[in-house]
Simulated scan of single mutants.
Amino acid sequence: MLRIDFTAEDLGRLRVAGEPDPLWEITLSLHLLQNRQAAVVFDPWRREVRAGLARAGLTATTTALTRLVPSAAYFPDFLTPGQGTAPDLHTGIELVLSTPRRRLAAELAQLCPRGPVPPLVRRLAEGDPRALQGLGGALRRYYAIAVEPYRPAVREAVRADRSVRSDAALRAGPDGLLRSYGPALTWESRTLTAPYPHPRDLPLDGRPLTIVPSFFCVLMPVTLADDGLDPVLVHPLGPAPGWLARARAQGRLGAADLPVGQLIGPTRALVLDALEQPRTTTQLAELLRLTMSTASRHATVLREAGLVISERRGHEVFHVRTGLGDALMDGAL
């Protein structure tokens, strides 16, 4: 059982993340690929993702990632930085790769307390630059297959959950907000309790608790292992069985099926949809299986139309949607 005690001041500091956190969705979806939890809900996704990973030649890469994120009570906290508020995948991965070496060594040591340490884990624990860059690439490639294509369904679930939480908070303040998480979470006498693999108290110590909704979190909430980090509580969104089939039938998982596709063309609509978060031309080409020249041409046309901006970060140029591009994709124009 997990127990979190609140003071009146703690209730005033309570926060709820407004968007899914890409790094939490990566780690928790990796858990689901290693177990059969919520089989009725997620088995169609498991089959689809495993096939997609195999086609992309990422089966071995995913196996390596599962050694860092085992389906167990512990996995390293540095893989989910930003206290549940990483704004996009690129920023989240940069935070992962900038983890201090001492912290890498301490957290990774807990993965293999008794058995032999796999070479990848050892190199990461030593802060090897090539191993860290390889980890960043693996996370990006895995996300592109296992999470990115399902982002519309994830966003829809998060928005629906946020509406429920907002209504509860407006009606009854922080007490009402925390009660709205029942029955998964129990709120009574300023104490929040939840099922957990082992008995644990999570001290707030005057720090704000951030509650993070997660599509791929199932059965019970998850929190960081280190009490010294700013407290985060990740809670399951609990999609209903058949979510994947319904989303496909309704066209929510393909930008080409959106009305904007009829205006700017299906491929350009896919490019604009993908640029909800910053991406290089190379990343766009890999994600959408386009040639570099085609991806560059679409990005240029969208930029000239004011739907995308491009900015240099070091040696790379990233493209991202503008407010006008967001409005077009959301049908707000």
Results as ranks from 00 to 15, higher is better:
residue 143 Y to P: 03
residue 159 R to M: 11
residue 230 D to Q: 15
residue 197 P to G: 12
residue 234 V to M: 13
residue 33 L to Y: 02
residue 146 A to E: 11
residue 92 G to W: 11
residue 273 D to W: 09
residue 80 T to R: 06
residue 255 A to S: 09
residue 132 L to Y: 04
residue 327 A to D: 05
residue 202 L to V: 12
residue 224 L to H: 14
residue 35 N to H: 12
residue 278 P to A: 02
residue 115 G to H: 08
residue 182 G to A: 15
residue 184 A to H: 01
residue 54 A to Y: 01
residue 92 G to H: 10
residue 63 T to G: 15
residue 50 R to N: 11
residue 53 L to G: 07
residue 48 E to G: 02
residue 242 G to D: 03
residue 240 A to Q: 15
residue 246 R to T: 15
residue 173 G to C: 09
residue 128 D to S: 12
residue 30 L to N: 08
residue 242 G to F: 02
residue 7 T to Q: 13
residue 145 I to P: 08
residue 151 R to L: 14
residue 261 G to E: 06
residue 137 G to I: 05
residue 75 F to Q: 03
residue 332 A to C: 12
residue 146 A to N: 11
residue 253 L to R: 11
residue 265 G to W: 04
residue 2 L to M: 09
residue 9 E to H: 07
residue 146 A to L: 07
residue 292 M to Y: 05
residue 97 L to D: 01
residue 116 P to I: 15
residue 152 P to A: 02
residue 206 G to Y: 04
residue 293 S to R: 15
residue 189 S to Y: 11
residue 211 I to F: 05
residue 106 A to D: 06
residue 204 L to P: 12
residue 295 A to V: 03
residue 278 P to W: 01
residue 84 G to M: 00
residue 68 L to I: 00
residue 166 S to V: 09
residue 132 L to F: 04
residue 184 A to G: 08
residue 278 P to H: 03
residue 112 C to V: 01
residue 105 A to W: 06
residue 179 R to Q: 13
residue 300 T to K: 07
residue 63 T to D: 14
residue 298 H to Y: 11
residue 142 Y to Q: 09
residue 277 Q to H: 06
residue 46 R to P: 11
residue 135 L to F: 10
residue 234 V to A: 13
residue 86 A to V: 12
residue 132 L to A: 01
residue 226 D to S: 12
residue 195 P to V: 11
residue 91 T to N: 01
residue 31 H to W: 11
residue 235 H to D: 08
residue 84 G to E: 04
residue 97 L to N: 02
residue 14 L to S: 00
residue 16 V to A: 03
residue 160 A to I: 02
residue 11 L to G: 05
residue 113 P to S: 08
residue 13 R to A: 04
residue 173 G to W: 08
residue 117 V to N: 02
residue 8 A to S: 15
residue 120 L to Q: 12
residue 9 E to N: 07
residue 51 A to Q: 10
residue 250 Q to A: 13
residue 51 A to R: 11
residue 21 D to Y: 08
residue 315 H to M: 13
residue 190 R to E: 05
residue 273 D to V: 00
residue 70 P to F: 07
residue 86 A to L: 09
residue 266 P to V: 12
residue 188 E to P: 00
residue 38 A to G: 01
residue 314 G to Y: 06
residue 94 E to W: 07
residue 203 P to M: 05
residue 110 Q to G: 00
residue 210 T to Q: 00
residue 268 R to F: 01
residue 258 L to W: 13
residue 311 E to Y: 15
residue 295 A to E: 02
residue 316 E to I: 02
residue 308 V to D: 04
residue 54 A to E: 14
residue 328 L to A: 10
residue 181 Y to P: 14
residue 177 L to F: 02
residue 116 P to Y: 12
residue 96 V to P: 00
residue 302 L to H: 02
residue 37 Q to I: 01
residue 102 R to D: 14
residue 177 L to Q: 00
residue 220 M to E: 14
residue 202 L to C: 01
residue 253 L to F: 08
residue 288 L to E: 10
residue 260 V to T: 14
residue 43 D to S: 14
